[in-house]
């Protein structure tokens, strides 16, 4: 790890201008991934702008019922927040399915979004990786890639995004709020992370110097239910092999709203638009779920050793859709 300057920002403005005034700056949130990557040499910032003490650490209800989650809200606090638990259970469940209690106590909402792939070739400086070093090649494509992408990958990169939280935010139609040198803007969570294409070094749509200040979730209207499910190699404290977040509302016995996103299948949380379209207006039957999910996963292009992800994702999605509809139809809370 190279030496670096350290600046503690007291305001968003201070943070963005400190960033702008230094080359090689990085924002430091909970550090759970950034410090890890700095130790590996994958990240080598010249300066860290510590944003953990910015007043962005609350969850607040906005007029009209939307929910704003400050970027510095720690993952454990986010998952425990009563409004999150009761209105957006998929988000609470997703956060709690990730990492460990210690890591969730440190990791922030903004940092969770910006965490980087756990692809072993990305983490190892001695191996080629187009994400880490554009043009160097991809060690994973013909290498060990059981954990890698089956959707939306490119010749340049087959990495997956590791976040559980971001999958729920995507299905919940969250928006990511950003402040940068050119002012504030927001991006749909579903569009925040990119597909790798020929620029895998770009994980997200964030622009240089921009700081994630928060995430806004639309109002959870009556009857909206949601859930998250993840499959992993051990019972806890492991990244997903595949995961799914489902947001559902039944109206007059048919599906009136469906939000569906997969985790660990692609370079970004995979919003399953085709499946959602197929579900909309359909009666909530297992056959309808299977049909919709199969439509989505027809686009999958498994690699040599990760074809299992397709049926795994299918099973997870059908299972969560079934559970949510069963709960809704029997009047139980999800």
């Amino acid at each position: 790890m190279k030496e670096f300057a350290y600046v503690r920002a007291g305001s968003v403005e201070e943070a963005t201008s400190a960033y702008a005034s230094r080359t090689g700056a990085r924002y430091l949130g909970g550090g759970t991934n950034l410090v890890d990557l700095m130790k590996l040499g994958v990240e080598a910032p010249a300066a860290l702008i510590d944003v953990t003490r910015l007043p962005l650490d609350s969850v607040e209800e906005l007029p009209g019922g939307a929910l704003r989650i400050g970027a510095m809200v720690r993952n454990s606090d986010l998952a425990a927040h009563p409004l999150v638990r009761h209105r957006y259970p998929a988000l609470s469940q997703a956060v709690l399915a990730g990492a460990s209690g210690q890591l969730r106590n440190a990791a922030t909402t903004g940092g969770n979004l910006l965490q980087r792939t756990r692809c072993p070739y990305f983490q190892d400086l001695s191996k080629p990786c187009n994400k880490r070093e554009p043009g160097s090649g991809c060690g994973a494509r013909d290498g060990v890639h059981r954990d890698h992408a089956v959707l939306g990958h490119s010749a340049h990169c087959i990495a997956t995004h590791p976040s559980d939280m971001a999958v729920a935010l995507t299905a919940l139609d969250g928006r990511v709020e950003l402040v940068g040198p050119e002012g504030a803007r927001s991006v749909a969570a579903a569009d925040f992370h990119r597909l790798p294409g020929d620029r895998p070094e770009q994980d997200t749509e964030i622009r240089p110097g921009e700081l994630v200040t928060g995430v806004v979730l639309p109002a959870a209207t009556a009857g909206l239910s949601s859930a998250y499910r993840k499959a992993r190699d051990r019972a806890s404290y492991a990244f997903a092999l595949a995961s799914v977040a489902v947001v559902l509302r039944l109206e007059d016995g048919v599906i009136g709203h469906a939000g569906l996103a997969f985790g660990a299948l692609a370079h970004r949380p995979w919003r399953a638009r085709r499946a959602e379209e197929a579900l909309l207006g359909a009666a909530p039957t297992r056959a309808a779920f299977e049909h919709a999910v199969d439509l989505e996963l027809a686009a999958a292009q498994p690699l040599r050793d990760n074809a299992y992800k397709v049926p795994l994702a299918r099973n997870l999605a059908v299972d969560v859709l079934s559970r949510l509809t069963d709960a809704a139809l029997t009047g139980r809370a999800s």
Binding site: Y6, L28, G31, T32, T52, S76, Q102
Partner: peptide, 15 residues
């Protein structure tokens, strides 16, 4: 008062 992994926290940030 909260449990954390001390290997991932820069000391300077904990002033």
């Amino acid at each position: 008062g909260r449990r954390v992994n001390s290997c991932l926290l820069f000391a300077v940030a904990l002033d």
